[in-house]
Design a protein around this nucleic acid. Structure first.
Lengths: 159, 159
DNA sequence: GTCCACCCTCCCACTGTTGCAAGGTCAAGC
DNA sequence: GCTTGACCTTGCAACAGTGGGAGGGTGGAC
């Protein structure tokens, strides 16, 4: 019935590292331990882990998942609350999508302008060098704002 | 002619924090110093900073910018190289866009299914709880891969 | 001589995930 | 009994990029 962390990881799709991490930040309740200190998990806890993974896959942040877990546990929550949380997240996604779309559009415009051969002159470099940019369609979002999603799930040593 | 870091920051749009950071990671050459240790910048360096900011605004990573700066400095680079770099970045953006689109689609589907009133039953929570998900269109990208963009520029304490 | 804005260098926070290290535990085989 | 190897424990560091603050020095105006 009860399993070690490795088995729980396989069953839930959450890595052992992450299970411990979620426990440490209080997203996940402290697991029971054997006499020797091994964490023990039941199927119930595994389904909670699956819930977390599903939520992460949809881009919810840890804090949002904390709220979702609370709502999940609360059998009397109004579905209105859950829906609002989801909609807020959709709005975040849209924000981010808009931002990325703008970047992509600008880049595509530049790539389109660049002949891309052996000659050195390049409108891409020129645009980066000389302010004024020339955003493809949207006015560029002068750096800084526009919150995004899940930094950790992103750019895994692409450099 | 030469200015302190604050002035350079205003002129370039890069914060003083970031200028020092870029210097520390070697993206930006070490600035000259006054006798008392103040960094001194010329218009030339400010334009480099602007180049960096423009690149960041387009979502390039520090490492990509390092490459772009090299190409910028190299008067004899083939525009082909720059173009390839930009196209690779576009591909990354597309990857990320796809991922976010899928999330959004799934969420919208769920929100659509949820009546969102005072009653507790909620398909959103149910879907998160019971594996099998039911992605709106794309099969869900089992966590982990799909590199993304600019963790830092994202999710600024939205939690 | 004092005040304030600016500069300096550190360290810490945040997001989420992974890696490594140094050790303990368990079940298997010999 | 003893070794081996797979597993578990903890903790610390790193990645990306940015912001915040502490604690102290500098520069120029009054």
């Amino acid at each position: 019935m009860s399993m070690n962390i490795g088995e729980a990881a396989k069953a839930s799709g959450v890595s052992t590292k992450m299970i411990r991490h979620y426990e440490s930040v209080g997203l996940f309740p402290k697991a029971a331990r054997t006499a020797s200190g091994y964490r023990q998990y039941t199927v119930r806890e595994v389904s909670t882990l699956r819930f977390i993974r599903q939520s992460r896959d949809l881009g919810f942040s840890i804090e949002q998942i904390r709220a979702l877990l609370g709502l999940w546990q609360d059998r009397k929550r109004p579905s209105r609350t859950v829906r609002a949380l989801a909609q807020a997240h959709i709005a975040e996604l849209e924000e981010k999508l808009k931002e990325l779309h703008a970047m992509k559009a600008t880049l595509e415009h530049l790539v389109h302008c660049c002949h891309g051969d052996d000659r050195p002159d390049c409108p891409i470099i020129d645009t980066l060098a000389h302010e004024g940019a020339a955003p493809a369609d949207a006015e560029h979002p002068s750096r800084g704002r526009t919150a995004g999603l899940q930094p950790g799930r992103t750019r895994r040593r692409l450099g």
